[in-house]
């Protein structure tokens, strides 16, 4: 199996979210960046498990500038064989997907794996777009993937339940909880990651279909209003008469 796992670089879950330049830019000051958890825990680890069972290769791909290289090395430390970075500022999902599809087209991967969404823009967009651009089937929010030769058996979350699907490679899939257990890189992996190949590919032409014009923080929450534990009925009164939601 020739497997491509697309990874995004995102601020750590606990990062403080703030903006600069009149609320038009994300403030990266003091922010720790990580591999998007769904890409790492589910897509990458499942890709590695399939490779370990059936042979083949796992390549990780990131779209971004050289500042992303340390994050890409983290994915190599977990076990990917090699990495590709497309030198392009990923601002719009369709433009990013176009870059990935242009690269993947010539490489004939058996599967292209994504996490279900990134924890920064929460788009759930790029995977489905890459599938359509490559004219391959797309399975979103998959919680299980078993391969038997080039035949895949997938369980995916749908509205109100789950579906079991059969699909033949090549395909594009976005991974959700259940797909795999997170792996922690060991010292050998971290050492090996330093010398694994990281190829930089120049971007092809693409247009941004969307752009963020400004950011906004939600209004600060007021203090919690505490109700006496001996009189919980008061809580329901408040929810009815003050919050007006019951």
């Amino acid at each position: 199996m020739k497997i491509l796992v697309c990874i995004s670089k995102v601020p750590d879950t606990t990062a403080k979210i703030a903006f600069t330049e009149n609320n038009t830019k994300f403030d990266t000051n003091g922010v720790q960046f990580i591999v998007n958890p769904y890409d790492e825990w589910y897509a990458l680890v499942r890709g590695l498990e399939i490779k370990e069972a059936q042979g083949g290769s796992v390549t990780v791909l990131n779209v971004g500038g050289a500042e992303n290289d340390p994050t890409i090395r983290k994915a190599l430390a977990i076990g990917a064989d090699d990495a590709v970075r497309i030198n392009f500022e990923a601002k719009d999902a369709l433009a990013t997907a176009t870059q990935i599809a242009e690269f993947a087209k010539a490489e004939n991967y058996d599967m292209v794996l994504f996490g279900k969404e990134t924890i920064d823009y929460n788009g759930s967009q790029v995977g489905g777009m890459v599938a359509a651009l490559l004219d391959q089937p797309f399975i979103s929010n998959a919680s299980k993937l078993e391969m038997d030769g080039n035949k895949g058996k997938v369980e995916r979350d749908i509205q109100g339940g789950k579906e079991v699907i059969e699909v033949e490679a090549p395909f594009v899939l976005s991974a959700a909880k259940g797909m795999a257990e997170a792996r922690i890189p060991n010292m050998r992996g971290i050492m090996a990651a330093r010398t694994k190949p990281l190829k930089v590919v120049e971007a092809s032409a693409s247009a941004d279909a969307t752009e963020v014009v400004s950011y906004e923080l939600p209004p600060a929450k007021g203090d919690v209003k505490l109700v006496d534990a001996d009189n919980p009925a008061e809580l329901l009164e408040l929810l009815r008469n003050e919050a007006k939601i019951i």
Binding site: F19, Y121, A209, E211, V212, V213, S214, Y215, E216, P218
Partner: peptide, 9 residues
């Protein structure tokens, strides 16, 4: 934790 105003071109 935040909102983005996104323009569709």
């Amino acid at each position: 934790k935040a909102f983005a105003h996104t323009k569709i071109n």
